[in-house]
Deep mutational scan, measured.
Amino acid sequence: TEHYTFHTEEQAQRAAKKFKKQGLPVTIHEKNGKFTLQVN
Results as ranks from 00 to 15, higher is better:
residue 36 T to P: 01
residue 20 K to D: 04
residue 27 T to H: 07
residue 19 F to W: 07
residue 25 P to E: 15
residue 10 E to L: 09
residue 33 G to D: 03
residue 22 Q to E: 07
residue 40 N to T: 11
residue 3 H to K: 11
residue 4 Y to D: 03
residue 4 Y to L: 09
residue 28 I to R: 02
residue 28 I to Q: 02
residue 31 K to V: 13
residue 31 K to H: 13
residue 14 R to A: 12
residue 9 E to H: 11
residue 27 T to Q: 08
residue 29 H to P: 00
residue 23 G to M: 03
residue 23 G to N: 05
residue 34 K to T: 09
residue 8 T to A: 04
residue 28 I to W: 04
residue 5 T to K: 05
residue 33 G to H: 03
residue 9 E to D: 05
residue 29 H to Y: 14
residue 10 E to R: 11
residue 2 E to Q: 14
residue 26 V to R: 00
residue 24 L to S: 04
residue 23 G to L: 03
residue 4 Y to G: 05
residue 11 Q to G: 07
residue 14 R to C: 08
residue 17 K to P: 00
residue 18 K to A: 10
residue 33 G to E: 03
residue 20 K to H: 08
residue 24 L to F: 11
residue 10 E to Y: 08
residue 18 K to D: 06
residue 32 N to S: 05
residue 35 F to R: 02
residue 8 T to M: 03
residue 13 Q to I: 13
residue 15 A to L: 06
residue 23 G to Y: 03
residue 30 E to P: 05
residue 38 Q to I: 15
residue 5 T to F: 10
residue 12 A to G: 01
residue 14 R to V: 08
residue 3 H to R: 12
residue 30 E to W: 08
residue 22 Q to K: 11
residue 11 Q to D: 12
residue 9 E to G: 04
residue 40 N to F: 13
residue 2 E to F: 14
residue 34 K to E: 09
residue 4 Y to S: 03
residue 17 K to N: 11
residue 27 T to P: 01
residue 13 Q to M: 13
residue 5 T to R: 06
residue 35 F to G: 01
residue 36 T to G: 05
residue 27 T to Y: 08
residue 5 T to G: 04
residue 28 I to D: 00
residue 27 T to S: 09
residue 12 A to V: 05
residue 5 T to D: 05
residue 18 K to P: 04
residue 32 N to C: 12
residue 5 T to P: 05
residue 40 N to I: 13
residue 35 F to E: 01
residue 36 T to H: 14
residue 24 L to V: 10
residue 14 R to T: 08
residue 18 K to T: 07
residue 38 Q to S: 12
residue 14 R to M: 10
residue 34 K to W: 10
residue 37 L to M: 05
residue 14 R to K: 09
residue 22 Q to R: 12
residue 31 K to I: 13
residue 4 Y to R: 06
residue 16 A to R: 04
residue 14 R to D: 08
residue 5 T to V: 13
residue 34 K to D: 04
residue 23 G to W: 03
residue 40 N to A: 11
residue 26 V to G: 02
residue 28 I to P: 01
residue 39 V to M: 06
residue 3 H to A: 10
residue 23 G to Q: 03
residue 32 N to H: 06
residue 30 E to D: 05
residue 16 A to S: 05
residue 12 A to E: 00
residue 16 A to G: 03
residue 32 N to D: 12
residue 38 Q to G: 04
residue 28 I to H: 01
residue 31 K to F: 13
residue 31 K to A: 11
residue 27 T to E: 09
residue 20 K to F: 09
residue 15 A to I: 06
residue 15 A to P: 00
residue 29 H to D: 06
residue 26 V to P: 02
residue 39 V to S: 03
residue 11 Q to F: 05
residue 9 E to Y: 15
residue 23 G to V: 01
residue 38 Q to M: 13
residue 32 N to W: 04
residue 31 K to W: 13
residue 15 A to V: 07
residue 29 H to L: 13
residue 18 K to V: 10
residue 8 T to H: 04
residue 14 R to S: 07
residue 33 G to N: 04
residue 25 P to M: 15
residue 4 Y to P: 04
residue 17 K to D: 13
residue 39 V to D: 02
residue 32 N to P: 00
residue 4 Y to A: 04
residue 2 E to H: 15
residue 24 L to H: 08
residue 3 H to E: 12
residue 23 G to D: 03
residue 1 T to F: 13
residue 23 G to I: 01
residue 4 Y to T: 04
residue 7 H to R: 09
residue 14 R to W: 07
residue 38 Q to T: 15
residue 7 H to A: 14
residue 23 G to F: 03
residue 26 V to H: 03
residue 34 K to L: 12
residue 20 K to T: 10
residue 19 F to M: 06
residue 22 Q to I: 11
residue 15 A to S: 03
residue 10 E to D: 07
residue 14 R to F: 06
residue 13 Q to V: 10
residue 24 L to Q: 05
residue 7 H to T: 11
residue 38 Q to Y: 14
residue 36 T to D: 06
residue 19 F to T: 00
residue 21 K to E: 14
residue 11 Q to E: 14
residue 4 Y to K: 04
residue 29 H to I: 14
residue 15 A to D: 01
residue 38 Q to L: 13
residue 3 H to L: 12
residue 8 T to R: 04
residue 29 H to F: 14
residue 21 K to A: 14
residue 8 T to D: 06
residue 40 N to P: 08
residue 9 E to W: 15
residue 21 K to V: 08
residue 11 Q to T: 05
residue 1 T to G: 10
residue 17 K to S: 10
residue 32 N to M: 05
